[in-house]
C-alpha cells in the first residue's frame, strides 16, 4: 500500500499542469493558480479559464530533503522549493541540476520536464516539471 502509488490515468489527467505548466486565470478577479480550479479560491467565481503560465521564476523558500518518501530515495538529498513565477503565481516544485548547497533564496530558475518517480511493480515512469537554475 504505497501512499503515492499512481496509476496511468491518475497521472495522465494531470498532464496539462505537469508537462507544460497549464494553470488557471480567474476572469473576474484576475487571480492565477496551478493547477486550474473550477472555482476561484480568492473570489469564488466559476469563470476560470486555462492559461499557460510563464516558465521562469525565482525561488522564494526551499528545504533540502534528507528523509525522502518511498519512490524518491534515488534523488536524496534533493531540494523542494516554493517558486514564484514571473507573473506572481506560486507553486511547489523539485529543483534539479543544482547542488543543494548552491540554492539561494531569490535564485532565478526555469522549468524543465524531468523524470519524477517510478510507481509500482510495473514501473510506470511519471514525468513532470522541475526547475533548474536559469541558463542565461
Amino acid at each position: 500500500m504505497w501512499a503515492y502509488w499512481q496509476s496511468v490515468p491518475a497521472h495522465w489527467r494531470e498532464i496539462p499542469a505537469r508537462y507544460r505548466l497549464e494553470g488557471g486565470e480567474c476572469q473576474d478577479c484576475g487571480y492565477r493558480m496551478i493547477p486550474r480550479e473550477d472555482i476561484c479560491p480568492k473570489c469564488g467565481s466559476r469563470n476560470v479559464k486555462p492559461i499557460d503560465l510563464p516558465r521562469k521564476g525565482k525561488v522564494v523558500n526551499y528545504t533540502v530533503i534528507w528523509n525522502a518518501p518511498r519512490g524518491y530515495e534515488y534523488y536524496t538529498p534533493y531540494v523542494i522549493a516554493i517558486i514564484e513565477l514571473e507573473d506572481g503565481t506560486r507553486l511547489t516544485a523539485q529543483l534539479t541540476d543544482v547542488e543543494p548547497s548552491d540554492v539561494k533564496e531569490g535564485m532565478e530558475v526555469e522549468m524543465v520536464l524531468r523524470k519524477t518517480r517510478v510507481s509500482g511493480e510495473s514501473g510506470l515512469i511519471a514525468y513532470s516539471y522541475k526547475f533548474r537554475p536559469l541558463i542565461k
Binding site: 503515492y4 505537469r18 530533503i65 511547489t92
Partner: peptide, 16 residues
C-alpha cells in the same frame, strides 16, 4: 498531487 508528487513531505512543509 501538487506538494507530495514533486517529492514534498509533511516534514518538508514544516521545514519551509
Amino acid at each position: 498531487e501538487y506538494e507530495g508528487f514533486p517529492g514534498g513531505t509533511l516534514d518538508a512543509m514544516h521545514a519551509l
